[in-house]
Design a protein around this nucleic acid. Structure first.
Lengths: 127, 127
DNA sequence: TACGGTGTATATAAACACTATACAATTTCC
DNA sequence: GGAAATTGTATAGTGTTTATATACACCGTA
């Protein structure tokens, strides 16, 4: 499972791990029922403490994306759409991301093109 | 200047303020040369400490969006496009935001529609 | 049942977010 | 020109969050 953490990214490490695994699940590289690597292995790969990864796993479980079982590993949960997040909770991060593009001076068409590009990547192994 | 902070939003208050002011600048509601409200006023409106707002202002200055002058207020800086952020720094938050939409089960067309909607709002008073 | 593999709990340290209060620079206005 | 009002800044303190080290508990299997 390929994950990297970015030193320059100001988000905490566990959050970066959460987001990357979410992307892997979204694009179908981690399918339902698949086992996630042990926390110790991910921790060793990234050079961080195992508890940092364990915290990320628990967060993913809290959001219903994986099932963590004490002693056995963690597996990708069956996908249940239309869960917790409200429309505004989804839109707010999108708005923040788009704002940065606008402030960077990119024209509308180019922004839409980039969005389409990213979305294509996320929908690849899916649906 | 209309800003609200969301208790349920896990981002720090200063970050929420930064993002909201960025959006105001992006959509042209805060034009170049316009004075921002004093930190004490914004702080009082939101019910937080003035230093929290001052920190947000300094962050906006660090990113080149406003000019803060000790004793006098803060004003919106002239827009200089294509500044610091790299392409990947722009794309990563976008990818995270889009991932949430995909995990929520929204079809591609609907996601693109929402993006267009948000982008329209951001480009309104602009250009 | 014992052992290797897995997640969990506890304790600690450092960094961060927010606050209260005092300070310093600028503007206003008499 | 100077005092008062207005503005941002610096410092110190408190609680929370992030990350770590270490020990513990659960699961599967030979």
């Amino acid at each position: 499972m390929y994950i990297v953490i970015d030193e320059n990214d100001r988000r905490p490490i566990y959050q970066q791990v959460v987001d990357e695994i979410k992307a892997l699940i979204a694009r179908g590289e981690l399918k339902e029922g698949t086992m996630l690597p042990p926390v110790r292995q991910v921790a060793a790969d990234l050079g961080v403490n195992l508890n940092t990864i364990a915290f990320a796993y628990r967060e993913l479980q809290r959001e219903g994306l994986i099932n963590v079982r004490h002693g056995a590993g963690a597996v990708v949960a069956p996908r249940v759409h239309a869960q917790g997040k409200t429309d505004d909770e989804l839109r707010k991060p999108l708005r923040a991301a788009l704002t940065q593009f606008v402030l960077a001076g990119l024209p509308r068409a180019e922004i839409m093109s980039i969005v389409g590009d990213e979305l294509r990547g996320l929908l690849k192994g899916n649906r």
